[in-house]
Lab assay of single mutants.
Amino acid sequence: GSLMYASIFGNVSAIIQRLYSGTARYHTQMLRVREFIRFHQIPNPLRQRLEEYFQHAWSYTNGIDMNAVLKGFPECLQADICLHLNRSLLQHCKPFRGATKGCLRALAMKFKTTHAPPGDTLVHAGDLLTALYFISRGSIEILRGDVVVAILGKNDIFGEPLNLYARPGKSNGDVRALTYCDLHKIHRDDLLEVLDMYPEFSDHFWSSLEITFNLRDTNMIPGSPGSTELEGGFSRQRKRKLSFRRRTDKDTEQPGEVSALGPGRAGAGPSSRGRPGGPWGESPSSGPSSPESSEDEGPGRSSSPLRLVPFSSPRPPGEPPGGEPLMEDCEKSSDTCNPLSGAFSGVSNIFSFWGDSRGRQYQELPRCPAPTPSLLNIPLSSPGRRPRGDVESRLDALQRQLNRLETRLSADMATVLQLLQRQMTLVPPAYSAVTTPGPGPTSTSPLLPVSPLPTLTLDSLSQVSQFMACEELPPGAPELPQEGPTRRLSLPGQLGALTSQPLHRHGSDPGS
């Protein structure tokens, strides 16, 4: 009898404990919600809404976190579960008819179910419309201010047509639940991603989709105040780019002037030289400038040598048109050559190039014969006009050509200096018209024969001689050997007369 009593008592207590286990969990969670309300000092109306929603959600799901349970299964099984949970929507909604099984599984994985109690606001006026909503159960109302403009029910759709707008718009009203509602919502990016994977279904979906109420604000059109608020930074940046392009296009129409201050000032006329910023005076940081632009901040801005204009002085008759350009485009679109090309026009420029290279940067340069637009006047290309890779490749080509020119210049200078040193070592320090008596009659020769300089066969020296023939050397430049009979510069000019005159010897006659 005691054994029977113990078994009955144990079973009854276990049954009672299981009955009250759900209630215990409910009270535990309710205590957490109330502690949250007390800690954050939530006001009474919002506090009442929180408690009511918790009670309804507990009775609806029995305190089970559906998302946590669903995430515990593998992905393939999750797709089947989501397809079952959203079967009513996918079967009865017209846009989803005719979709393949794979497309429906992908869509079912992207849908999220939302449960809303009465009085809950789903979308506020001015919120971004980031999702498309399908009503599965219940009814909602749409308000503009305090005026109800629409009441939607089961199988209705609200949001915005995503295929017509590249960016999400703003809501033009509040969406509030009238009863307990079940909503299926899919985010904008998720829907577009699935439709991109199934393009054959995309056309059918957009053609058959009928949005019951379009929440997009109709005033959000390009150029409206609301649109400016939504895309303020983007609009200002776009206007700045367009104004920069218009100014650079105007600059290219004036090829007669070359400016070292950047493309923003290349198009300024002579009357605007004294102004601080020219056409860019209202925004000094709008356009890029070269490193020399920092010198323009000092006094005497109108007389600054940074602004270059072609000189009108005539060229000498024998002067060549100019050196070879550094870039391939210089032959086609440049009416002034790079300062480095002028360094190779003569030997005198070679000796004085490194010492006063900055001073020569603004000297007169030889002109190319074609009066085409200036290379320095070409505006900086924006990322939309020329690819970045093209600019980098041009810079690399320019750097390689500069290296080759520097190597060639160093070799030419070394060769010229070597020839000058050899000339100085071969010439005796001094010569006299009267020579010392020699031991015999073989001493009648006034000077030792001097062998002429070897013929220069280097390509670089031939180019130097060509430049010497075309360029007029300055007075202080050293002379180079030329073709024809060679003669030492330090010898007297009348050596031929010395050989014809008898030598005057000093000596005593033994017979006297």
Score class of each variant (00 low, 15 high):
G126A: 02
G126Q: 03
L128E: 10
L129Y: 01
A131P: 02
A131L: 03
A131K: 10
Y133H: 14
F134G: 02
S136Y: 11
S136M: 05
S136E: 10
R137Q: 07
G138C: 03
E141T: 11
G145I: 01
V148W: 01
A150T: 09
I151C: 03
L152T: 03
K154V: 10
D156S: 05
D156N: 04
D156Y: 01
I157M: 06
F158L: 06
G159W: 01
G159I: 01
G159T: 02
E160Y: 03
L162Y: 12
N163F: 08
N163V: 04
L164K: 14
A166S: 10
P168Q: 08
P168F: 01
G169F: 03
G169Y: 02
G173P: 02
V175P: 02
V175I: 03
R176S: 03
R176H: 03
A177Q: 01
T179H: 03
Y180C: 03
C181A: 06
C181G: 03
L183F: 11
L183C: 10
H184V: 13
I186C: 03
R188N: 07
D189H: 07
D190H: 03
L192T: 06
L192P: 03
E193A: 13
D196Q: 09
D196S: 10
M197V: 09
Y198K: 02
E200A: 06
S202W: 04
D203N: 11
D203A: 15
H204V: 10
F205T: 02
F205R: 02
W206F: 04
L209S: 03
L209C: 10
L209T: 06
E210A: 09
I211M: 07
I211P: 03
T212S: 07
N214I: 05
L215G: 03
R216N: 13
N219R: 14
N219P: 15
N219T: 10
N219S: 11
M220L: 15
P222Q: 08
S224C: 08
P225H: 09
P225A: 03
G226D: 10
G226L: 13
G226H: 10
S227C: 10
S227T: 12
T228V: 10
L230T: 12
F234M: 12
R236A: 11
R236V: 13
R238S: 12
K239T: 06
R240L: 09
K241S: 13
K241T: 09
L242N: 08
S243T: 10
S243K: 05
F244C: 11
R246M: 11
R247F: 10
D249I: 15
D249K: 10
K250F: 13
D251H: 07
T252W: 11
T252Q: 13
Q254K: 08
Q254D: 10
P255G: 07
G256L: 11
E257S: 11
S259G: 11
S259T: 13
S259R: 10
L261E: 13
G262L: 10
G262C: 10
P263F: 09
G264C: 07
R265M: 11
G267P: 12
G267W: 07
G269D: 13
G269C: 13
P270F: 13
P270A: 07
P270N: 12
S271I: 12
S272P: 09
S272F: 13
P279Y: 01
P279N: 12
S283A: 09
P284R: 11
S286I: 01
P288W: 05
S289E: 14
S289L: 04
S290E: 10
P291M: 03
S293N: 13
E295P: 09
D296P: 12
G298W: 08
P299E: 07
S302A: 09
S302N: 13
S303C: 06
S304G: 13
P305G: 05
F311W: 08
F311H: 04
F311V: 12
S312I: 13
S312R: 10
S312D: 09
S313I: 09
S313F: 14
S313M: 13
S313H: 01
R315D: 12
R315H: 15
P316A: 07
P317L: 06
E319W: 07
P320N: 09
P320Q: 15
P320R: 10
P321L: 15
G322Q: 12
G323I: 09
P325R: 12
L326W: 15
L326I: 11
D329T: 10
D329E: 14
E331Y: 07
K332D: 11
S333V: 10
S333E: 07
S334F: 03
T336H: 08
C337I: 11
N338P: 06
N338Y: 10
N338T: 11
P339M: 10
L340M: 10
A343L: 08
F344E: 11
F344I: 11
S345Q: 14
S345G: 06
V347I: 15
V347M: 13
S348D: 15
S348M: 11
N349C: 03
N349G: 11
I350H: 09
F353E: 07
D356M: 15
D356P: 12
S357L: 09
R358I: 12
R358S: 09
R358A: 10
R358C: 04
G359C: 11
R360T: 08
R360N: 12
Q361L: 08
Y362Q: 06
Y362I: 13
Y362E: 08
E364W: 03
E364R: 12
E364Q: 09
L365G: 13
L365H: 08
L365T: 10
P369F: 08
A370M: 06
A370T: 10
A370H: 12
A370I: 15
P373S: 08
S374H: 04
L375G: 10
L375K: 14
N377S: 14
I378G: 04
I378N: 14
I378K: 15
P379L: 03
L380V: 13
S382Q: 15
P383V: 12
R386K: 15
R388D: 15
S393Q: 12
R394M: 13
D396C: 15
Q399K: 15
R400S: 15
Q401E: 04
L402S: 05
L402T: 06
L405R: 03
E406D: 10
T407R: 10
R408S: 08
R408V: 10
L409H: 03
S410P: 04
D412Q: 01
M413E: 01
A414S: 11
V416T: 01
L417N: 01
Q418W: 03
L419E: 05
L419S: 06
Q421M: 11
Q421N: 04
R422Y: 05
Q423N: 11
Q423H: 07
M424T: 13
M424I: 09
M424A: 09
M424V: 13
M424Q: 05
T425D: 05
T425G: 08
T425L: 10
L426F: 14
V427G: 12
P428L: 09
A430E: 12
Y431R: 15
Y431K: 07
S432Y: 04
A433F: 08
A433R: 14
V434R: 12
V434W: 09
T435A: 08
T436C: 13
P437N: 13
G438W: 13
G438S: 11
G440A: 11
T442R: 15
S443M: 10
S443K: 06
S443F: 08
T444E: 10
S445Y: 08
S445C: 12
P446W: 04
P446R: 09
P446I: 06
L448T: 08
V450Y: 13
S451A: 14
P452E: 08
P452C: 08
P452W: 04
L453S: 09
P454W: 06
P454N: 11
T457S: 05
T457M: 12
L458G: 11
S460R: 09
S460V: 05
L461E: 15
L461V: 08
Q463N: 04
Q466I: 03
Q466R: 12
F467V: 13
F467Q: 14
C470A: 06
L473A: 06
P475V: 09
G476V: 13
G476S: 08
G476E: 09
A477C: 10
P478I: 06
E479A: 08
E479I: 01
L480I: 08
P481D: 10
Q482S: 11
L491Y: 04
P492Q: 13
Q494W: 11
L495K: 09
L495A: 08
G496F: 04
G496M: 10
G496Y: 13
L498R: 12
T499K: 06
S500M: 13
S500C: 11
P502V: 06
P502R: 08
L503V: 10
L503K: 05
H504T: 06
R505E: 12
H506L: 03
D509I: 05
G511A: 12
G511P: 05
G511L: 04
